[in-house]
Structure formats: structure tokens, C-alpha cells
Design a protein around this nucleic acid. Structure first.
Lengths: 208, 208
DNA sequence: GTGCGCATGTAACTCGTTACATGATTAG
DNA sequence: CTAATCATGTAACGAGTTACATGCGCAC
């Protein structure tokens, strides 16, 4: 006999389940992981995490033992049904994201700006993204067996880290290409956008 | 004599000012523009827009005449100080965005998924982004003088549209590269990530 | 013994969404 | 005349942030 329970879990709940599927953690630990590495694509403060953990616990998706001997710390563990719910969520088509990109919004009005201040703005942006790119690359290297080859198999947690980093790097590279192009434009040099320079960009991606 | 007024405008307020800097619009028109084209990087419902317009009006950044003859419609116009505020905002470094990327969050846990459902998931994603890319490309073409050359000058509104589209296209291309790579991985074909296939990707961006 | 990092909790507020509500104009 | 679109407004709710608050354990 199978009990059909309607469980409504927030996205944050799944972020937490995704962490606990790898190892048991306390609320405090989760807060740390939600800064780095997950913080690159999802964040939450502890003021959200503790209530969410209690909710997950109420739903039976995680369990918490008693606080550790002599410590206040209380570790949470994912349950069988927690894993099931997580897996179900993984294959559900994502909610279309509400776009909130302040840089794009500013760029839409770039024609209003004084060229010198625009130049300063986009140079600063370029610096920030370039830093972010090196950070990602360094993290990727530690997960690589060989250049471009993940050390982990498809069913190992590290493959998740690897795959997200690959997108992050692609995204940052595209962003930097764009910064360079735009800065050139602002300086009066009318170069081609990166995406137009080579006609086979991306075309041979799956058939090397 | 110069009055120094501390004006606190929401990001949405600047989105609206950015639109009104191009032409006078009613609240209704703004709601439409905030679906497309601005909707690609910022959105708002009319329930936010009307109150925000009244706030901007109170601050003296926009003015609204009487409703048009016999119509309910009321058009808003940006003021001189509205333009000044907008320009000031443009060069201010952007607030670091709170990342909320559900797809990345799922990918982080991809090792938990059944390969077939993961495959279906990322194929669907690929389709959606591929559609988005063609949409961007079609929009870009209408703004192009010649392939890769904007019709508009740096100080014309259309340059803003052009620049945002260039990033959008770069981003979607990177996203599609990643989808292809990941799908290959899931199928057991261990191809190189797009970013590793050619070592000069992006390097010659500003010096063709 | 004191200050820092661990560890958890809650209240107030903000921004944004959904839903409810109304009325005018126009196309068929 | 009637339905769709234009046009505006507000209330209730939800998710997330900032700020306030507490207490333990350990290193100096």
C-alpha cells in the first residue's frame, strides 16, 4: 500500500535536499554551502534555512537526531522519501525564471550615458567577470582528470559540480567577449561581435 | 543655486525612466514594453507600475498631463531631473545580483537523476534556448546595417537594444553549447566542453 | 576573561506576485 | 449589443532580506 502525500516544497527546500543527498549537515553547514559553491546560482540566509529545515522535517523529507553530545549542533539527514522527492523535482521542467538583470537594464539606456562613464562602468564589469572566470577555472581543474574530462562519473556528486562549472565558464567567457566588444564600440572601434567572428562557433560541439 | 535632493528610486523606477527617455508613454504602454523587449531582462506587472509612476511623479522625475481628450489614458513624460537621475544611475556599479538559477540547482544534483529523465530534461531545455536564440537573432537583424554592424550610433536608443541583443545571443549560444555537451555526457559520449575545443575562443575578440 | 566563530532563532520590512475590481473604447 | 482590449487601481499573500537576539566552546 502506498500513501499518496501531497508535498509542497520550496525551491530552497530542494537546494537543501540536494546538499543533504551528498552528506548529513547542520543548518549552519548548509548556510555555509549556500554561500559557496551553491551561492553561484542560489542563495539563502540562515533566517530562511532554519525554518525550512523544520518544514522539511515535518514533511518527513529529512530527519534530525538529537543534538550531538555536549554540542548545540544538530545534523540533518535526508530520508528515503526525501531522495524520491528530490529526484521527482529534478526532471520537472524548470519554472521560467523572472529575469532581473540590472546590467542589461543599464545597457538598454547606454545611449544616454556619457561615453567616459560608460567606459569606466564596463571596464569595471569586465574586471569582475574576469575574476569570476578564473575562480571557476581553478575550481574546474580540481575536478578534472585530464583537460576537459571530469574525474567523476555521471552518478557521482562531483559530476554535478563539474557540469555547473562548465556552464559557468561558458557564460563568463561569453560575457567577457561582450564586454570587450562593447568597450571597443565605446572607444569608437567598430569591431565585430564575438558571436559573428567565426561562423562555426558551437556548430561542431557534439561531434569533435 | 542648486537644490540637492536625496531621491531614492527603485530599480523598477529606472526601468521606467529608461523607457520614458525614449518617448512618452502611459502606464499601460509601459506594462507592455516591460513584457517585450525589456521583459528579457526585467519584468513588472501593472500592479507595480502604476504606484511606481505616482512615486516618480511625486519626486518630479516624470510629469503627467491631464488624461487625453475623452480618453482615460494618461501619458507620462520624463523631466530634466528624471534624465539626470537616470544618467547618474547608469554609471553606478550594479548591485551584485542575487543568483537564482533553478536549472543550475538541478544540475548540481544531476548525479541523482535517472539518465533517461535527465536526457529528456536537457533536451527540452535545449529546445527552449534554441528558440530564444532565433528570436534574438531575428530582432538583431532588424537593427543591423550590415552583418555585425549596428545601424544606430552610440547615442541613439537603438544602440541600447542592439547591445543587449548581442549579449543575449552570446549567452544563448554558450547555453546551447553547454546543453549539447551535457547531453553527450548523458549519452555516454565523452566529448570536450565547447569552451575547451578551441584555444582561441574569445582571445581575438577586440583585435580582428 | 574576553573575544571570535559556531549555532540557532525570530521580528520587521520590502519587493513582487496573484487576485480582485472597475470602467471606457472599439471591432464584429 | 456584446465581447475583447484598453486602462487603471488596490488588497492579500509569499518569499527573501536586514536586523535584533541569545548562548556555547575554544583560543589567546
Amino acid at each position: 500500500m502506498r500513501r499518496v502525500t501531497i508535498v509542497a516544497v520550496h525551491t530552497l527546500g530542494f537546494a537543501i535536499l540536494g546538499l543533504l543527498a551528498r552528506q548529513p549537515l547542520s543548518g549552519y553547514d548548509i548556510a555555509l554551502k549556500l554561500r559557496r559553491p551553491i551561492g553561484f546560482y542560489w542563495t539563502a540566509r540562515h533566517s530562511q534555512i532554519y525554518p525550512e529545515l523544520r518544514r522539511l522535517s515535518r514533511e518527513g523529507l529529512v530527519t534530525s537526531g538529537k543534538p550531538e553530545a555536549g554540542r548545540r549542533r544538530r545534523a540533518y539527514t535526508i530520508t528515503r522519501s526525501g531522495r524520491t522527492e528530490l529526484r521527482r523535482w529534478l526532471s520537472k521542467p524548470p519554472a521560467r525564471p523572472e529575469p532581473r538583470d540590472e546590467v542589461m537594464l543599464k545597457t538598454y539606456s547606454i545611449w544616454m550615458a556619457r561615453p567616459e562613464s560608460a567606459l569606466a562602468f564596463y571596464r569595471q564589469l569586465q574586471g569582475a567577470h574576469s575574476l569570476r572566470l578564473s575562480e571557476y577555472k581553478a575550481m574546474l581543474e580540481t575536478l578534472e582528470l585530464d583537460t576537459g574530462k571530469p574525474r567523476a562519473g555521471l552518478d557521482e556528486p562531483d559530476f554535478g559540480n563539474y557540469a555547473t562549472l562548465v556552464l559557468g565558464i561558458g557564460y563568463e567567457q561569453a560575457y567577457l567577449d561582450w564586454c570587450r566588444w562593447l568597450i571597443d564600440q565605446l572607444k569608437g572601434r567598430r569591431s565585430l561581435p564575438a558571436s559573428k567572428r567565426s561562423s562555426q562557433r558551437g556548430k561542431k560541439a557534439s561531434k569533435p
